[in-house]
Design a protein around this nucleic acid. Structure first.
Length: 487
RNA sequence: GCGCCGGUAGCUCAAUUGGCAGAGCAUUUGACUCUUAAUCAACAGGUUCCGGGUUCAAGUCCCGGCCGGCGCACCA
């Protein structure tokens, strides 16, 4: 039996007695950050003569007999509250506030003799009491379990958490605004899918009672978005959650945020150019620069990013000329020498891609486009015109991780059917991440998909870099955790 | 799923070879008219994650379980 959490209740009923009736609204006139900007000129001991109404949470309290100081925080910053027995209505109650209480304060903007910009409290209202104290006021909260299960307490206690989630929000905004500015229409496609497709991943399964049908949470919005392009929306994007029933790690959460976009008449070269401008621009929107430090190492998003074919990178890493036409046996031997288990169903293309992941991926620190992926691992990408075993596909890598994936879209319905059938063979052979045949999508291609390029960006991964977070959970407000069993 | 590490007061952390379970902050009470993690004094606060076992004696050692961190695997 798991014990209920133990904590100290404040004796709030004693402290507040009849004042427990809290107001439903507070007529707020100023934010902390704006006060600091506006009244920076006040000299120590000077009073502005201006009355304001501020609200926020009591972070610190220094009660000193007939005067008291509190540090109050709102969403923009902090301001000191300065209360005097001779000035402040209900002074004794003010001195008994608890850390974490929400207050609304009326008073004059002043700077104290000791130089701290303050609101001299004329009157105040308790907007909410903190009946549970959250963290150490100096050390914050360090316990991961508590921080992730109760992010509200983590946000109260830890500046780093607030900064990381704020940067994530700014990044999402920048990405969205840049897509709009480039003429992409934001759309929403189904999360409940009869067939999980658009990526290689194990799905979550659910069930709709009235329809009497099994559904899968989407693993990618890709095919729906291309159907909208078939319908005539030439530039579309979706920024939303996808779900993959896979392992949890510092770089993986079962639900994560993907930006996918499609542009008619573009090829993968056009999309690479757009990708680097989009990402570098969004990073600059958030940080004011494309040059930053991630986990102690320099990283620069400045364009153009390095471009290299998968075959060239693998050849360089292994020390011999290798490509998709190298014999499958030789590539498999190179994999085996690197302790990679080679499945019987893998052809040369899959082996080459696996060799890339084993020898190159972790070393790609600066933003890099890896191009010309084998057809075998790219069931939705258009074949390269000069080598039909390759595709016009790229992935971007940075800090040793994949950031984005894009390609010239396969528009030929007959080739698409053949690719799906090959995936179905893999599934029958036991690959539970292989794609399934989506007849509706093939029908859509038969109505005509114009030449189109697509892109998917792992937004959480980019947020980690922008927030300098080593762990994806730091940029997800409420990461997926195992429920605590009560038995 | 596998391996390593961790879980002690509300929070942050101590506890020597197995030998009386502690501190700071928070809470409670009191003092204090310019503090800045205010200060000072006092009180109180424990199923040491859960369940077994070894032992005269277990926070500590052993077994099982729960949850978390990291690594591997899977993947973005």
């Amino acid at each position: 039996m798991a014990h209920p959490p133990r904590f100290t209740y404040h004796s709030w009923t004693q402290s507040f007695g009849s004042r427990m009736t809290t107001p439903y609204t507070f007529a707020h006139t100023a934010y902390c950050a704006a006060l600091a900007d506006t009244y920076g000129f006040l000299a120590p001991g000077e009073e502005s003569g201006v009355a304001v109404a501020v609200a926020g949470r009591v972070m610190l309290l220094r009660s000193q007999g007939r005067l008291a100081f509190a540090t109050m925080r709102d969403s923009t910053g902090e301001i000191q509250l300065f209360a005097l027995e001779a000035v402040t209505k209900d002074f004794e109650e003010f001195a008994k506030l608890h850390l974490g209480d929400w207050v609304g304060v009326h008073g004059e903007v002043v700077r104290t003799k000791r130089g701290e910009l303050s609101v001299k409290v004329a009157s105040f209202e308790v907007l909410a009491t903190a009946r549970r104290n959250f963290g150490d006021k100096w050390a914050g909260i360090a316990d991961f379990d508590l921080r992730y299960r109760h992010r509200e307490a983590d946000l109260w206690a830890n500046e780093d958490t607030r900064a990381a989630l704020a940067r994530r929000s700014a990044l999402v905004r920048a990405l969205r605004e840049r897509c709009w500015a480039a003429g992409f229409m934001e759309v929403e496609t189904p999360i409940l899918n009869a067939i999980p497709t658009g990526a290689a991943a194990r799905p979550f399964v659910t069930y709709h009672q009235a329809l009497g049908s099994e559904f899968f949470l989407r693993i990618a919005p890709e095919l729906w978005l291309k159907r909208l392009v078939v319908g005539g929306f030439e530039r579309v994007f979706e920024l939303g959650r996808v779900f993959r029933n896979e392992g949890v790690s510092p770089r993986h959460n079962p639900e994560f945020t993907m930006l996918e976009l499609y542009a008619a008449y573009w090829n993968y070269e056009d999309m690479m150019a757009f990708t680097e401008e989009l990402v570098a621009g969004a990073v600059a929107d958030v940080l004011g620069t494309t040059a930053l430090t991630y986990q102690g190492r320099d990283l620069d998003f400045a364009t153009p990013w390095r471009r290299a074919t998968m075959a060239d990178l693998v050849s360089e890493a292994v020390g011999e000329e290798l490509n998709v036409h190298t014999s499958r046996e030789h590539l498999a031997a190179l994999l085996a020498a690197r302790d990679v288990e080679v499945h019987a169903s893998w052809g040369a293309g899959r082996c080459l891609a696996e060799l890339f992941e084993a020898t190159c991926e972790a070393d790609l620190w600066q933003p890099t486009f890896v191009t010309q992926y084998p057809v075998e691992v790219s069931p939705l990408a258009r074949r390269h015109p000069t080598d039909h075993e390759l595709t016009e596909r790229f992935e971007s890598y940075l800090v040793g991780r994949e950031l984005s994936n894009g390609f010239s879209e396969l528009i030929d319905p007959e080739d698409q059917r053949a690719r799906f059938e090959e995936q179905a063979r893999l599934a029958a052979a036991g690959d539970d991440e292989a794609m399934r045949i989506d007849e509706d999508y093939i029908k859509a291609l038969e109505w005509g998909l114009p030449p189109t390029a697509g892109l998917g960006v792992g937004v959480d991964r980019l947020a980690m870099v922008v927030a300098d977070s080593p762990n994806i959970r730091e940029v997800i407000a409420f990461p997926t955790l195992k429920p605590v069993r009560e038995d």
